[in-house]
Amino acid sequence: VKKMAKAIMADPNKADEVYKKWADKGYTLTQMSNFLKSKTAGKYDRVYNGYVIHLD
């Protein structure tokens, strides 16, 4: 998940494709939050927020 999150950060155009894969795998927002937690607070906030919007 972190590898794909980094791919989104490097190229935001990949976001919809990645979010669809995550949704197809049934990842919940709680799971995504836990996967994307980082020592650098807020590092993956943009990715998480994008997934929230995708699921909505």
Rank of each mutant, 00 (worst) to 15 (best):
V1D: 03
K2R: 11
K3P: 05
K3C: 14
M4C: 11
M4R: 04
A5I: 05
A5N: 02
K6C: 12
K6I: 10
K6H: 11
K6L: 14
A7G: 06
A7P: 04
A7F: 07
I8W: 02
I8M: 06
I8Q: 01
I8C: 07
I8P: 02
M9G: 03
M9Y: 05
M9W: 05
M9N: 07
M9L: 15
A10I: 11
A10H: 11
D11W: 06
D11S: 07
P12Y: 08
P12D: 04
P12Q: 08
N13P: 04
K14L: 13
K14R: 12
D16M: 11
E17L: 09
E17Q: 09
V18P: 00
V18F: 07
V18L: 06
Y19F: 10
Y19V: 00
Y19H: 02
K20C: 04
K21Y: 15
K21S: 14
W22Y: 02
A23I: 05
D24V: 08
D24L: 11
K25I: 14
K25Q: 14
K25M: 15
G26D: 03
Y27S: 02
Y27M: 04
Y27H: 03
Y27Q: 00
T28W: 02
L29P: 10
L29R: 08
L29S: 07
L29A: 12
T30A: 12
T30R: 10
T30D: 15
Q31F: 07
Q31D: 13
Q31R: 03
M32R: 00
M32H: 01
M32V: 13
M32G: 01
S33V: 10
S33K: 15
N34S: 13
F35Y: 10
F35N: 04
F35P: 00
K37R: 11
K37V: 09
K37N: 09
K37A: 12
S38M: 06
S38A: 07
K39Y: 09
K39H: 13
K39A: 11
T40D: 11
A41W: 09
A41R: 10
G42Q: 05
K43F: 11
K43M: 09
K43C: 09
K43P: 05
Y44W: 09
Y44R: 02
D45Y: 06
R46D: 14
V47G: 02
V47N: 00
Y48M: 12
Y48V: 07
N49P: 04
N49Y: 14
G50Y: 04
Y51V: 02
Y51H: 01
I53F: 10
H54W: 15
H54Y: 15
H54T: 03
L55M: 09
D56I: 15
D56W: 14
D56Q: 15
